[in-house]
Nucleic acid binder design. Sequence first.
RNA 1: GCCCAGAUGGCGGAAUUGGCAGACGCGCUAGACUCAAAAUCUGGUUCCUUCGGGAGUGUGGGUUCGACCCCCACUCUGGGUACCA
Length: 858
Amino acid sequence: MATASKDYDFSSIEPKWQAYWADNATFEAKDFEDKPTFYVLDMFPYPSGAGLHIGHPEGYTASDALKRFKKAQGHNVLHPMGWDAFGLPTEQYAIKTGTHPAITTKQNVANFTQQLTQLGFAYDWNREVNTTDPGYFKWTQWIFMQLFKKGLAYVDEKPVWFCPELGTVLANEEVLNTPEGPRSERGSFPVERRPIRQWVLRITEYAERLIAGLKDLDWPDSTKRLQENWIGRSEGAEITFDVSGHAAQLTVFTTRPDTLYGATYMVIAPEHPLVPTITTAEQSDAVAAYVEKAKSKSDLERAELAKEKTGVWTGATAVNPINGREIPIWVADYVLMTYGTGAIMAVPAHDVRDFEFAKEFGLEIIQVIEDGGEAAKDAEGALLEAYTGSGKLVHSGEQSGQDSETAKAAVIQRLAAENRGKATIHFKLRDWLFSRQRYWGEPFPVLWVSESDYAKVDDSLKSVDRPVTCLIEGELRHAIILPEAELPLELPVVESYTPSPDGQSPLSKAGDWLHVYIDPKTGATSAEARDGWIQGIRETNTMPQWAGSCWYYLRYIDPKNSEALIDPEKEKYWGMPDLYIGGAEHAVLHLLYARFWHHVLYDLGVVSDPEPFKKLFHQGIILGEDGEKMSKSRGNVVNPETIIESYGADALRLYLMFLGPLEAMKPWNTKGIEGVARFLRKVWRLVVGEEGGLQANIGEGTLDSETERLLHATIKKVTDDYSTLSFNTAISQMMICVNQLAKVERLPREAVESFVQLLAPLAPHIGEELWLRLGHTGSIAEAGWPKHDESKLVEDTVKIIFQVNGKYRGDAQLAVDVSKDDAIAAAKANERVQAFIQGKSIKKEIYVPGKIVNIVAV
RNA sequence: GCCCAGAUGGCGGAAUUGGCAGACGCGCUAGACUCAAAAUCUGGUUCCUUCGGGAGUGUGGGUUCGACCCCCACUCUGGGUACCA
C-alpha cells in the first residue's frame, strides 16, 4: 500500500484512497450499531448531461467533512447519495434523439458517480436511490395511493399554465413573472392559461399544520419566513352583503372587519360567477367588454400593468350590513378570483389598493380609523394616502371609540348574530398541481372506469369519502387506485416521447398499455378480458419531478425494502436527518412539499415524527471570477475536473471551504487556490522528508509551551468550527498552526498525528496518506478524534491593553489575576500613558479583567 | 412597492455578553537561495503624516469610559415576492 513518493503527488494518492474507501466499505452505515447515530443529508442532484457544476462540491464537501468528523468522534454516520432522475432535459434529449430516457439517465448517473468519487466524497453507495428505479417509484406511487384513499387527491379542469414550447402544463411555481410576461422557469418560454384535466393534491388541508410546524424547526429564519409568507395565513372574517333588487348575496373576505363602516363600494373579480347576474342592462355592454378584455390580457399584462387601476361599475348596488348604506358594486381585475371569495368590500381610507381605485374613479373615501397624525392629508384634512394601521374607530356607529382589535371582534359578533358574517382564516397557499403531460415521470397508479362499473368495485380501491370523477371524451368516469400488488406500475414503451399538441401526455398513445381489464374485487389487471372483470383506462398523466424528491430521505434508511416503504425499526434507529444541507432555491417548493407528504405519512403511522428536517442549512452560491452568476453564456464557468487535474481534490475541497462562510455568496478566484495548495505542501513536508521517509525531527519529546498551547487551541477551535460548519476559520487556524509547527526543531509524533487528524475531514486523501506514513494501519476516519487539554490553554500572564480616553497607548503582560489597582498602577507607570495623562485630571479609571485598562482624563 | 440578507484594505474574508479593527489567504513588494527562472524561505503591505501623531469598518445622527458590534434615519448591493383583501 505504501508509496514511496517524496513529494506531494495528489494525482497518485487520491485515486488510491478512493479505491481504499470503496474496497473496505469504510463509510458503510450499519443498521442498529450501538453508537449514537448521525444522519447528514445532501439535496440529491438531478443527473444532467452537463455533469457536476462547481456548486455541487460546495455543499457536498461540507457534508462530507462533517460526516468524517462525526465518524471520527464515534458516531454511526449515515451519509447517502442518490438521483432525482426524472425530469425534463432527459426527456427532451429523448425527443431529439429517440434515446430512451432510462439509457441517458444511466449514463449520466455513471458520470456523476465518477465525478463525485473523484472529489473524495465517500458515500454509502449501498444505499443509493434513484427516483426512476421501479423499486423506488413503487413507493412514490404507494404514497400517492394513500393520498388518494385519504381523499387528498382530486381531478380538476381549471385553467392552468400551459407552455406550448415545452408541450406541458406547469405549476404556478414553475412560472416566472418577467418583463416580457409570464415565462416558464425552465427555458424561459412564453406560457398561457389553458383548461386541462389535472390531478391536484389538497396541500391546503395541511396549511395550518405546515405553518405551526415551522415554529420548532432549526432553520434559517429567512427560510421559515419565506414558507410562512408562501402559506400566507390570514385571519379575518367573511361578511355577506345583500345585492339590492336581487336574491343573490355577495360574500367577501376581509382582515379588517373593524373598517366595515368605511366600506364605500365593493369589487368583484371579472371571473366572478355573479357578474352576469347582477350587471344591469345599461352597464352590460361595458361590463362584458371589460370582462372580455381582462380575460384576453390573461395574467400576462394583468400583472404587468398592475400600476394602473381599471374597472367598470356593474350598475348594481349592495347593502352594507352594518349601517344599511347602499354602495356600488364594481368589476375590477385588481381583485383575484383565486383568493378569498373573489369579492371584496372596498375601504379606500384604509387600504392602499382601494384608495388608488377610489381616486381613479372618484369614489367616496370615509376615514373610520384615527391615524394619530401618521397619514398625509391635504389642507381640508382629506387623506392623501390610505392609513393601513390600527387605531380608534370614528364615524362607526356604536363601535366608535373602540380600538381596532376590540372592534374586529365586536363587528364579527354582531354580524354573526344576524348570520351575516363569521370569523374565518384564509390561506394564500393553493392546492398542489400534481400532474404533467410528459413521459419521463412516475405513472399514476390510477384507472378510470364507467359509473356503472364503479359500483362493482371494492371499497379498498376507492376514495370512499371523496370519489374522484371526470369527463373523458364526453363520458363520466370514476377513478380507482391500483392495489399495492400491482405496483410498481412501470412506464410503457412508446414510439414518440413528444406530447400531443393538445397537451395530452405521450402515454395517451400507448394503446396496449392504456386499456386494461380489472378485477373489481382485488384490482388485479390484465390485457385479456376475464369473466366478471371490468374495463378501464389508465391515467396518462405522470407525476411532477417533486414527487420523487418528496420522500427520498426516508428511503436511504431502508433502500432495498420491497415489503414496505421503510422498516419502522430502522426508522426509529436512524430517525430523521440531523442536518439537511442544500441550496436556498428550494426554500419553498421542495421543502414545503416534502413537509406536506411527511405530515401525511406521520398521520398514517409510517414515520414517528411529523417534521422531516429538524435542522437545515443553505450553502451559498459560488459566483464566477467576475462576481456574476456562473453561466455558459458569460463564459465564467469553473469546471471542478480541471481544478482537480492541476491542484487535486483535497486542494479544491479545502479552497471551496476557505473562500468564506459556507452560507455566503462568494466569487471564485482561481489564483486563490494557490494558498491552500501551498498549505497542503507544507503539511506534507512536515511529515515526509526530502528522501521520502518520515521527517527526521519527528519523534519523542514535548513541544515548547507556546507551541503546545497553540496546538491545543487549534484542536479546540477546529473541533468547534467543524461542529458549526465554520470551515473557513477552521482552515485559517490550521494554517497558523502548521506555520508554527514548521518552525519547531523537534516534533513529538503525537502532535503531528493530532494535526493530521484535524485536517483529514476536509482533505481526506492527504490525511490518510500521512496517517499511513506515520506508521498506522487502517483509515484515519476510524482513528478517533484528538481532544484538547484545557490545562494547556491556561496562561499565567495576559496582555492588558492600556487606553487613555478609549485610545490604545500601550500594553503590558500582567498576571492573569492581577487586581484592579495593580493593573491601573501598571498602566499609569507606562511612559506613553503618562505622556497622555500629564497635566490632566483623571475622571475615571476602568479595568475590564484580563482585557483592558481605560483612563479617562480631561 | 413589500419581505429578507448584506456593505470592513487592491481582492476573498477575520474579529460578538461592546474592549489592540484588518487574523488567515490571494495579490503586490523588498530580500535570501540561483548563472538565471520556477519552486521554497524571510520581511513589508489600510490611508494620511511635519514621524509627535492623526483618520479609518457604506452615509448622517445617538447611547457609552470605549461601537464593525447596540439604537434611530438614510444610501447602495444581492435574493425573494408581486394587487393575497
